[in-house]
Nucleic acid binder design. Structure first.
Lengths: 120, 120
DNA sequence: TGCTTATATAGCAATATTACGATTAATCAG
DNA sequence: CTGATTAATCGTAATATTGCTATATAAGCA
C-alpha cells in the first residue's frame, strides 16, 4: 500500500518520524551540510557540487523548505538558501530528547553479540 | 526512478541518511520508544499496542534489526527484542555531530519570517 | 523587445516502501 | 503425535519516492 497509518501514532512519534524521513536522503544531508559549513546562503552551487540534475536538486530543496529546515529568498535571477536556525535548534531538541533516553544505563537483555554473529 | 544514487555522496552522508531513513517511520519510532521505556526485552507486545498487522510489525522489527538498532533472541515460542546499547550510543554520536554544527551562532541571511509567511 | 541565465514545475518511468492476507516454521502443552 | 501459539516469510496491491527530460517562469541585460 505504501501509505503510512499516521492516525495510529502519537503526535510526537509522527513528528520524529517525519523529521527523520526528510533527513533520510544523502542529497538532503549534503545540502544541509553545505549550508551549515558556509554558515548560510548559497544558491545554485548545489547543482555544481551534487551529481543530480537541476530539477532534482530543486525538488530536494523544496522538501527541506516544506519541513521548515531551510528558507530561500529570491535575489535577482538566483535564489539564496539558508538554514532556518530556529527550526534547526528545534530539530536538535526533538531528536535529542528521543535519542538521549537510552544513552546511559541500558543493559541489553539479549545476547547482542550472538545475535550479530547469527545475522552474518 | 526511485533509486538513490549513493555513489555520489560521501560515506558519512550515506550513513546519516540511512540511519534517518530507518527512523523515518512512526511505527519504528513507537517500537524504539517502547523498548527504551521498558529498558529492554519485550516481544509480541508490539502487536497488541501498535495498530498494524503482525507481519507488518515483524517487517519493521527486521528493518530495525538490519540497521543494528535492536537485537532479538528466541525464547521458547516468542522472541525477545531489545535495544542494542552500543549501536544506540553510536547513533547518538553520529547524529549529534551532524546536528550540533549549527546549534549556536547561525545567523540567517534570508528573511525566514517573510519566507514562512510566503508559504502559507 | 528579444536573449540569456537561474530556478521551478509538469509529466513520466523505475524502483522502494508500506501493509495486508495466507502460509510456513518452530515451540510448547496435552 | 496433535493442536495451539508465536513469529517470520511469501506474494500481492497500493502508494511514495527518486530522478530524468522538457517546459515554464522570472529577472537581468543588450
Amino acid at each position: 500500500m505504501g501509505v503510512t497509518k499516521h492516525d495510529s501514532y502519537t503526535a510526537e512519534q509522527n513528528r520524529i518520524a517525519a523529521l527523520c524521513k526528510v533527513l533520510g536522503h544523502p542529497a538532503r544531508i549534503a545540502i544541509l551540510q553545505k549550508l551549515l559549513a558556509t554558515d548560510c546562503c548559497i544558491c545554485r552551487d548545489f547543482t555544481d557540487e551534487i551529481d543530480l540534475a537541476q530539477p532534482t536538486i530543486s525538488r530536494h530543496l523544496q522538501e527541506l523548505k516544506a519541513a521548515g529546515l531551510i528558507a530561500g529568498t529570491i535575489e535577482g535571477t538566483s535564489v539564496s538558501y539558508c538554514i532556518n536556525p530556529e527550526r534547526w535548534r528545534e530539530v536538535w531538541t526533538v531528536l535529542q530528547s528521543f535519542l538521549s533516553v537510552g544513552t546511559e544505563g541500558i543493559t541489553s537483555c539479549c545476547d547482542v553479540a550472538a545475535e550479530q554473529e547469527q545475522s552474518k
